[in-house]
C-alpha cells in the first residue's frame, strides 16, 4: 500500500514537472541566459550558457531604454492611486457598514454594479480630455482609482461590519476623532482586507498597458509597461539588449511576487469563492 502510494506521488510529480517547467520556467530562463550573452554568441548559439558572460547588456539597456525615469513614474502612479483609492474606500465603507447613512445599501449596490458594466475606456478618454486629465501625472492617478475603490468598498464594508459597534461609542466617549478612529483603530483591525485590496489595486495599476497608451502622450510620463513596450519596438532585432530590458522590468515583479504571492492567492480564492 505504502509503496503504491509513493509510486503514485512520483508519477504525479513527474507529470506536473514535465508540463509546468517547459512552459513556465524555460522561456524565462532562456531569456535570462540571452540577456547575459554577447550579440555574437546569440547569433551563433543562443541555447548555450553565456560565454563570455556579458553583464554590460543591463547598464546599456537601462540607459537606452530610459528605465530609470519609467520606474519612478510607475512608483508614483501605483503608490498614489493605491493609497488614495484605499483611503476613499475606507471612508465610504465605514458609514455603510454601520448604517450611519441613509441609502447605504443603495450605495453598496452601486459599487457592486461597477463589476457588471460595459468597458468604459471610451468615455474615460473623452472625460480625460474634457477635464484636462489627459497626459498629466495626477490625471493618470485619478483615472486609476477605479479598481481599488470598487474592490475596497466591498471588502472593507464586510470587515467593518464584524467590528463591534461598542468600539465606535467608546472611542467617541474617549474623545477620539472620526478620522483618527477610522484610520488608526478600525483600519489596523482590517489588515487582511487592507493588504488584499492594496495589492490588487497596485498590481493592476503597475501592470496597466492600455492606460498609458490611451491617457498619456509624452515619453516623460510613461510608466514601465509603456516604456518597455516602446523599447521592444525600437530594439526588436537586438535580442541581448531586449532580454536585459525585459528582465530589468520583470525582476522587481518577480522579487515582489515572492512576498505578495500568498496575499494574491488569499485574495483570489476568498474573493472568488464568496462571489
Amino acid at each position: 500500500m505504502r509503496r503504491r502510494r509513493a509510486w503514485d506521488h512520483a508519477w504525479k510529480l513527474a507529470l506536473a514537472v514535465v508540463i509546468i517547467v517547459p512552459l513556465y520556467g524555460l522561456p524565462l530562463l532562456y531569456l535570462l541566459s540571452v540577456s547575459f550573452q554577447s550579440p555574437v554568441q546569440f547569433l551563433r548559439n543562443p541555447f548555450s550558457f553565456p560565454h563570455p558572460f556579458v553583464l554590460a547588456n543591463y547598464p546599456t539597456a537601462w540607459v537606452q531604454g530610459d528605465f530609470g525615469r519609467y520606474f519612478v513614474n510607475s512608483v508614483i502612479y501605483t503608490a498614489s492611486s493605491t493609497m488614495l483609492s484605499v483611503l476613499f474606500a475606507v471612508f465610504v465603507a465605514f458609514p455603510i457598514a454601520r448604517r450611519y447613512v441613509r441609502g447605504g445599501s443603495f450605495i453598496y449596490s452601486l459599487f457592486l454594479a461597477g463589476f457588471f458594466l460595459p468597458v468604459s475606456i471610451v468615455p474615460l478618454f473623452i472625460e480625460a480630455e474634457k477635464l484636462g486629465l489627459y497626459n498629466t501625472r495626477w490625471g493618470y492617478i485619478l483615472l486609476h482609482l477605479q479598481l481599488g475603490l470598487t474592490l475596497g468598498v466591498l471588502f472593507f464594508a464586510g470587515y467593518f461590519s464584524n467590528v463591534p459597534k461598542d468600539l465606535d461609542e467608546s472611542a467617541l466617549l474617549d474623545g477620539c476623532g472620526y478620522f483618527r478612529y477610522v484610520l488608526q483603530i478600525l483600519l489596523p483591525l482590517s489588515t487582511p482586507a487592507l493588504v488584499t485590496v492594496s495589492i490588487y489595486a497596485a498590481v493592476s495599476t503597475w501592470n496597466d498597458l492600455i492606460g498609458p497608451v490611451v491617457f498619456l502622450a509624452s515619453n516623460d510620463y510613461f510608466p514601465l509597461t509603456r516604456g518597455l513596450f516602446s523599447f521592444y519596438g525600437q530594439y526588436e532585432s537586438e535580442w541581448t539588449l531586449l532580454a536585459a530590458g525585459v528582465f530589468i522590468v520583470a525582476m522587481p515583479l518577480i522579487l515582489t511576487f515572492a512576498f505578495i504571492q500568498r496575499y494574491l492567492v488569499r485574495g483570489a480564492t476568498a474573493g472568488a469563492l464568496k462571489l
Partner: peptide, 14 residues
C-alpha cells in the same frame, strides 16, 4: 470620484 471615474464612464458608454 467613483461616479466620475467608474460608474459614470461605464454608463456613459451607452
Amino acid at each position: 470620484a467613483y461616479l466620475l471615474f467608474s460608474i459614470g464612464p461605464a454608463l456613459g458608454t451607452f
